[in-house]
Simulated assay, not measured.
Amino acid sequence: MLKRLCMLISLLLFFTGCAAKDNSTSESITTYALDTVITINLYDEGSEAIFTRMTNRINEIETLMSKHIAGSEVDLINQNAGIKPVVVSQDTYKVVERALMYAKLSKGSFDPTIGPIVDLWGIGTEEARVPSRDEITQKLNYVDYEAIILDEQEGSVYLSKTDMSIDLGAIAKGFVADELVLLLRNEGISKAIINLGGNVYAYGEKDNGDEWKIAIQTPYDQRNVNFGYVEIKDKTVVTSGPYERYFEEDGKTYHHIFDANTGYPIDGETVSVTIVTQSSMDADALSTLLFTMNQKEGLDLIESIDGVECLYIDQDYEIRMSSGFEEMFTLTDHTYKIVDN
C-alpha cells in the first residue's frame, strides 16, 4: 500500500509540474478517499468554501458507495442479498444502473457483482493471497449481473442470490470526477485539473486557449515515467492496468482486474488500456471492460461508440489506437511502437 501511495503522489506532482510549465497559477488541495490520492487544481480564483464543498461531495459519495464502510448503501445492498431490495439514493442507483448497462454490453466481461471474487483474493490489502481453485469455483456461483434487480419507481437495488455482493470500484471514481466537474461548473469555475489517482479530468482550457497536455504512464515502470500525452479539454483520461494493484507469490504476479468467468486475474496480451471521453464514469467502466476483451473486439466496440477513444498497449510494447485517439496523441518514448489495428 505504501508503494502505491508513493506512486500516486508522484503522479500528482507530475501534473502540478505540467501546470507550472503552462505558466498558469492554481490553487489546489490534496486528500485521500476512495482508496486513492485525490488532487484538485483550480485555475480560476478558488475559495476555501469551494474546496470544502468538493471534499464534502467526495466524502458523501464514498460513504454511499464503498463496500468497505459499514452501513454504506452498497454495504446494505450486499448485506440484504437474497433477502430484500434496498432503497438507495439517486447517486447510488445511477452508478449501479450504469454498471449494469456495461455488464450487459460486455455480456458479463465487466460485472459489478465481482465482489465475492475481489474479497476472496484480497488484492490491495494485507490479506492478499492466491485462493484454491475450489474456493474460486464456489464464489463464482455468486457472480451474476443478471441477478441484479433494479426498481426505478422505488429507487431500489436487489441482489436476488444470497451471498452475492456488488463492488463499484471500477466505476465510482469516474462518477466522483463527473460530480466534481458539475459542482465547479455550478460555482462558475471554468478551468481545473481533477486527478483521482490517475483518473484525470481536464476541465475547460488553459488561459491562452490551448488544450491541456495530460501524460499517460507507462505500465512497465513504477516511477511514473510516461510514454506519451494527449491534448484535450473538457474530457477525461482514464487508464487501467495491472500495475495499479497487485501482489507477487512464488514468482508470479497477480493483479486486481479479474475475469468474471474464471475468477482469476486476466492473463492476456494487454498490459494497459486508456480511454478518453467526456464522462469519467463511462471512461472508468470502459477502461476495465476493454481490458477484459481482446484488442480487436475492444477497438471495434470503441469505434461504434460516439465520442469515445481508446489506446491499448500489449506485452511487446506495441500501441494500437482508435481512429480519433491518433489525432490527440503524441508519442514521447520510442521504446513503444504504434502499429496498425
Rank of each mutant, 00 (worst) to 15 (best):
N226A: 05
G241D: 08
G307M: 01
I171W: 04
T218E: 14
S279C: 04
T277N: 07
D316T: 11
Q278G: 02
V37L: 04
N56L: 04
I313Y: 07
S132N: 11
I194Y: 04
L42Y: 00
F291P: 06
N59H: 13
I257V: 13
L42G: 00
H334M: 12
Y254N: 03
S279H: 05
T270S: 15
E327M: 03
I194E: 02
G122T: 13
G17C: 03
K191N: 12
E152P: 11
Y229N: 05
N23I: 05
V238T: 07
H334V: 08
C310H: 03
N341T: 13
M65P: 10
D44P: 05
K337M: 11
M7Y: 09
V95K: 01
G46S: 03
T253G: 12
L180K: 06
F291W: 02
F110G: 01
I149D: 08
S272Y: 00
T236V: 15
T330Y: 02
E152L: 05
A70T: 14
F15R: 14
T292N: 12
F110D: 01
M281N: 02
Y43H: 14
N41E: 10
I58W: 06
A99E: 14
S106H: 08
Q315W: 11
F247A: 06
N261M: 14
I166P: 13
E249F: 15
E211Y: 03
F258Q: 01
Y312M: 11
F258E: 01
Y43A: 09
I302F: 03
N80D: 14
T25I: 12
T292M: 06
I50A: 00
T288H: 02
D221L: 05
D151P: 08
I83M: 09
L140Q: 00
V238L: 08
L12T: 14
Q295H: 11
E309A: 04
I302N: 00
R133H: 13
T236C: 15
K161V: 06
D267K: 11
L105W: 10
A99P: 14
V37R: 01
I193G: 04
T332Y: 08
A19G: 05
Y145W: 12
D167A: 15
N141G: 05
G124A: 07
S240T: 13
E154Q: 09
